[in-house]
């Protein structure tokens, strides 16, 4: 089943997919564009992976100072950076290189500590699509990539749906792509992750307890390009969702 959280009629609702759009828990059936979409669950710890697709590593290799792949490059984000489906992301006027990142997001459903990869799938609640924007102008070589690059307000998009794990037989068999104004600019496949979902859960749970609601953004493949004000960016993973986002300028934020 596919689950969403939306704002409608002055309240926040849980909703599920419906042929006409979505159905609120109270029975109301609404069109997709009649509601305000929120991230589809209330997130706990937000873990993101950098450089987890071999082709993306190659793409960025020119600016990488260290290429060691000893362990996954994981960093954290905070809930304040999140927005939902059909929302707007701010592009600062002075940014030179701001790019999307289409990523499969794995939502934890059961507490996980020292979990072996063979058992890891039991701890997954489901999946959603993430668009994890970065502004590369702000990269510095301390705890890189740092929050000014990766944890900006409006720059982490999640949704539209949380898809139950039971409905995704193989999360490593999912084509994904990004379209900017209708043109495909990024294409990849979740089988190409360097560290797969099971290994990520094993790795992370080897030193920290993962709790229900924690989410792992599993990294992005090759094909990140700069986006500009007015662009419609659609990050899409087959079987998981099609996440629409629009880039807006400083003026919208009174800057």
């Amino acid at each position: 089943m596919k689950h969403a959280r939306v704002a409608y009629g002055g309240a926040i609702h849980d909703a599920t997919e419906h042929p006409a759009g979505l159905r609120l828990a109270d029975g109301r059936v609404l069109a997709e564009d009649a509601v305000v979409w929120l991230p589809p669950f209330e997130p706990g710890t937000i873990i993101a992976l950098g450089l987890n697709y071999a082709d993306h590593v190659k793409e960025l290799s020119k600016e990488l100072t260290v290429t060691s792949k000893d362990e996954p490059l994981a960093f954290l984000k905070s809930p304040g950076a999140l927005i939902g489906h059909r929302a707007q992301t701010r592009r600062p006027a002075d940014a030179k290189f701001m790019h999307y990142e289409c990523e499969l997001a794995v939502v934890i459903g059961r507490s996980a500590r020292n979990v072996r990869r063979g058992d890891a799938m039991h701890h997954v609640a489901g999946y959603t699509v993430a668009n994890d924007y970065a502004i590369r102008d702000h990269l510095e070589n301390y705890y890189r990539p740092n929050l000014r690059v990766k944890n900006r307000d409006t720059c982490t998009v999640l949704g539209p749906w949380l898809v139950d794990a039971a409905d995704v037989p193989d999360p490593h068999a999912l084509p994904l792509r990004t379209r900017v104004n209708g043109r495909v600019t990024q294409q990849g496949h979740t089988r190409d992750m360097i560290t797969g979902i099971l290994e990520l859960i094993e790795y992370l749970s080897s030193f920290m307890t993962l709790a229900p609601g924690d989410v792992i953004l599993t990294g992005t493949p090759d094909g990140v390009v700069n986006v500009d004000v007015g662009d419609e960016v659609i990050t899409e993973i087959d079987g998981i969702g099609r996440l629409i986002n629009t880039i807006v300028g400083d003026d919208v934020f009174g800057r």
Binding site: T45, E140, A211
Partner: peptide, 16 residues
Amino acid sequence: YKAPPKAPILYIKPRN
């Protein structure tokens, strides 16, 4: 590092 920090360098201590 190649240069001293310019902006605040932040990290998050997660809920666990």
